[in-house]
Simulated scan of single mutants.
Amino acid sequence: MELTTVWFIAIAFLWTSYFFLEGFDFGVGMLLPVLGRGNVERRVVINTIGPVWDANEVWFIVAGAAIFAAFPEWYATLFSGFYLPLLAILLALIVRGVAFEYRGKRDDARWRSRWDKAIFWGSLVPAFLWGVVFANIVRGVPLDADHEFAGTLGDLFSPYALLGGLTTMILFVLHGAVFLALKTSGDIRERARLVAGIAAIGAVAAGGSFLLITQVEHGEPVTWLTAAGAAAGLVLAAVAIRRGREGWAFIGTGAAIVLAVATLFVALFPDVLPSTLVEAHSLTTDNASSSPYTLKIMTWTAAVFTPIVLVYQGWTYWVFRKRIGTDQIPRPKNEPVR
């Protein structure tokens, strides 16, 4: 197997890991004002991802760095043509990170309320725009002979791209609701299960439509299997959450995300950014890649450090695996629970 193909698969793995892990972070953030009734409950919601959200975000950094190093032409065209959506994502992630750190710095309800809104919007904006970005990557964008983006901002918000954004947003809400049902106890857990049941309906409708259109217009024979598997994962999650089996529901939403991302990358290969103007202008794994020597060094580096990262992050989740509830949140005297 050529190293360009190896690194295309590696980048697909990095993005899949990012969406699987950061997906429930985004969902938890979007559900904060819905499931957190009062400061104590909102602290419980935030604490479910408090030990892990920043580590989950590292996958995005590594995925971007991998594209830069392995396929610099792809990186240059992507980050110039998609500049405004990617800038909005970056700013939202910064605001959300600051909100997690600063929310508890002052014992003031209005102060906390402002940062809670920052967490909500800092989660919703990336959850929607990532779907828009990847829908455009698969569908293709106007590229000229120099592989430069020749379109406008409006070209990035086609109906197909907006459907992709809606799909990721609803899917991450479902993923986050299932994660909260798995990680909390008491009233929050019950409300999370109720929200997950509702979100599952929207995820099946939006996700099924998006994957069907993707398969018909851009798919390969093998992606019928991955798309069907993603749909089956959503159905499994919907059935499991109604039966109170949060573990199986989380497996279902996780499988849906993994297989949906796999569908997009398999449909994309061997292109990395198709051109809608002239097919010969498309960026591929061959014409967008670094030198073989660079790819060889990257491969050895990844082979050494990737297992270490996986073991460390797995250990982190094992340490913080138990459920939490309002009774575990210390609070000042006379402060109500709700």
Rank of each mutant, 00 (worst) to 15 (best):
V204Y: 06
G208M: 11
F128E: 04
L129K: 07
E73D: 00
I11P: 01
F68L: 15
R243F: 04
I137D: 00
V222Q: 12
A262L: 03
S275I: 02
R245T: 05
E73N: 10
I297T: 15
G229S: 05
R114N: 12
F305L: 13
L162S: 01
W224K: 03
K105F: 14
F210W: 13
A177C: 10
A280K: 10
T285W: 08
E41F: 00
R43C: 03
L212N: 01
Q313F: 15
K117A: 09
L129Y: 03
A203V: 04
E22D: 09
D25T: 04
R243G: 07
F13M: 07
E335Y: 10
G50S: 09
S209Y: 11
S185H: 08
F8G: 03
A199S: 12
K322G: 03
L91G: 08
L162A: 04
E2G: 00
L212Y: 14
W7M: 03
V319L: 05
P292C: 07
G104H: 10
I297F: 11
V58Y: 14
P330G: 02
I198G: 05
R112N: 09
L153T: 00
M169D: 07
I67N: 06
A260P: 07
A66R: 10
L166D: 12
P142C: 01
A118N: 14
I9A: 10
H175S: 01
D54G: 07
I297Q: 11
K117R: 02
Y102G: 05
P336Y: 09
L225Q: 08
G252I: 07
T263P: 02
L129S: 02
A262V: 05
V278Y: 13
G314H: 15
G164K: 12
T5F: 15
H147L: 09
E41G: 00
T226K: 03
H175M: 05
A237T: 08
F8Q: 01
D327S: 08
D25E: 09
A92D: 05
P85K: 06
V266S: 09
E220G: 01
A181S: 04
G81C: 03
R193Q: 15
A206F: 14
R338C: 04
G252R: 00
G325P: 02
G244F: 06
A127L: 06
T223C: 06
S209H: 09
W111I: 13
D107W: 10
L295H: 12
F71M: 00
A177T: 12
F128Q: 09
H281E: 01
A192Q: 04
S275W: 15
G23W: 11
S17W: 12
R331L: 06
A145L: 10
P221R: 10
E190F: 02
G164F: 12
F179P: 00
L166S: 14
K117C: 06
A240K: 00
A267I: 12
